[in-house]
């Protein structure tokens, strides 16, 4: 048994050097060299200042921006504390929260009359979902158009231009990146 332990200690050390130090080290060096943007978090800079990551959702509450999904990460879109609501389907809290979201949505978007897209009032798994469905974006379009005082058609066109489709007929779900769409709004119609 002593011999087994001695081999174990040596092997753990060797493996630590190999897989815990050399492997991530080489991968880091390679990735920083090959893919500097993604390796550092796909950050978006405006005027040299980091405004977020194209992969990480952030909170929007103002009417002139498209709103993301409800978030359970920290106090909402806390990118250093990811997580979902973990509410089960029969949890009264889930029902109450969804009811609130629906009420708020209806109040903020009196022009939209259709059923509410499922993703818009449910919390994502990470709490950092950067996307909403095209339907969720379209449901908010009248509000954004009104708040920004631009024609609805232009907003809808912008949405269509930002839809990421389904690759090869099955890979992925049509979606719109909220941050990128809002940045585009600011770019085209000015930051208010």
């Amino acid at each position: 048994m002593w011999k087994q332990l001695s081999i174990s200690v040596r092997l753990v050390i060797v493996m630590t050097v190999l897989t815990g130090f050399l492997y991530p080290g080489i991968v880091t060096v390679l990735c920083q060299w090959l893919f500097p943007t993604t390796a550092n978090g796909s950050l978006i800079r405006v005027n040299g200042r980091v405004v977020g990551s194209s992969l990480i959702g952030q909170n929007f509450t103002k009417p002139e921006y498209f709103h993301p999904r409800p978030s359970a990460a920290g106090g909402g879109y806390d990118a250093s504390n990811s997580g979902g609501s973990n509410y089960g389907p029969t949890n009264q809290k889930l029902i109450d929260r969804v009811k609130n979201s629906i009420a708020e949505f209806r109040k903020a978007n009196p022009d939209y009359k259709g059923p509410i897209p499922a993703d818009l009032v449910t919390a994502s798994a990470s709490g950092l979902d950067p996307d909403i469905s095209p339907a969720s974006a379209e449901a908010q379009a009248p509000r954004v158009a009104q708040a920004r005082g631009v024609p609805l058609g232009e907003i809808n066109q912008l949405i269509r231009a930002h839809i990421k489709g389904r690759a090869a007929g099955f890979l992925g779900v049509p979606r719109v990146n909220v941050l990128e769409l809002n940045l585009e709004l600011d770019r085209q119609f000015g930051h208010r």
Binding site: G84, N86, P117, A118, A123, P134, S136
Partner: peptide, 11 residues
């Protein structure tokens, strides 16, 4: 243009 189903806790 929306996924439907049970989207609570899904991306």
């Amino acid at each position: 243009g929306q996924p439907g189903g049970n989207m609570e806790g899904k991306e």
